[in-house]
């Protein structure tokens, strides 16, 4: 599935594919694979990628590992705070089908039921080589205009919202220590 793009959007997509700023959502165990991919051994920055501290500046949302019900609320918040176009990468088996937590009462089983995921990296854990394979693939998808999760989220917002409400009851975050 691919949308018609104007020449300006094609240029913009080309730029976006070469300057990807990532927001790491590292509540799972996958975070440990990122330092080697960022530092001297594999050096993510040579592809123009780098970590960003806030969702406002990020292009890629990297969800590493399992999401519990509690963190899913924060993930949805964060995803909706990111500016378009935004891409989501699910990292590790837990984001695909629950992984070893498939029967847990607190962790969700698939992320793309709640927010659109452009790319999954399978493995428990994926090695940095797999991460780079995935990011070159994501670059190709962005250049070709195939990474359109953010458009899908807008078009099918009702469906995603209904799924979120079904699993979470309420997306709003209540925080005992701040109320």
């Amino acid at each position: 599935m691919s949308y018609e793009r104007t020449i300006w959007e094609k240029i913009a997509d080309n730029l976006r594919s070469r300057s990807m700023w990532m927001l790491h959502y590292c509540t799972g165990c996958g975070a440990v694979e990122l330092p080697p991919s960022m530092t001297s051994r594999f050096d993510m920055e040579r592809l123009g990628m780098g970590p960003m501290a806030t969702p406002r500046q990020a292009d890629i949302f990297l969800i590493t590992g399992y999401l519990s019900v509690k963190t899913l609320r924060r993930v949805i918040y964060t995803y909706e705070q990111m500016p378009d176009p935004k891409y989501v990468v699910g990292f590790g088996s837990c984001t695909i089908n629950g992984g070893i937590y498939y029967d847990s009462y607190a962790t969700i089983n698939r992320v793309d039921y709640y927010i659109p995921v452009d790319l999954y990296i399978a493995g428990c854990m994926p090695r940095p080589e797999a991460i780079f394979e995935a990011f070159t693939e994501l670059m190709r998808m962005i250049r070709k205009g195939e990474a359109i999760g953010w458009k899908k989220y807008k078009e099918n917002y009702e469906w995603y919202k209904q799924n979120q409400l079904k699993s979470l009851g309420e997306v709003y975050v209540h925080d005992e220590f701040h109320e």
Binding site: L15, R16, R18, R56, D59, P83, D84
Partner: peptide, 9 residues
């Protein structure tokens, strides 16, 4: 230029 091409808040 990428930052300028995005849709912000």
């Amino acid at each position: 230029f990428k930052a300028l091409s995005k849709h912000g808040f």
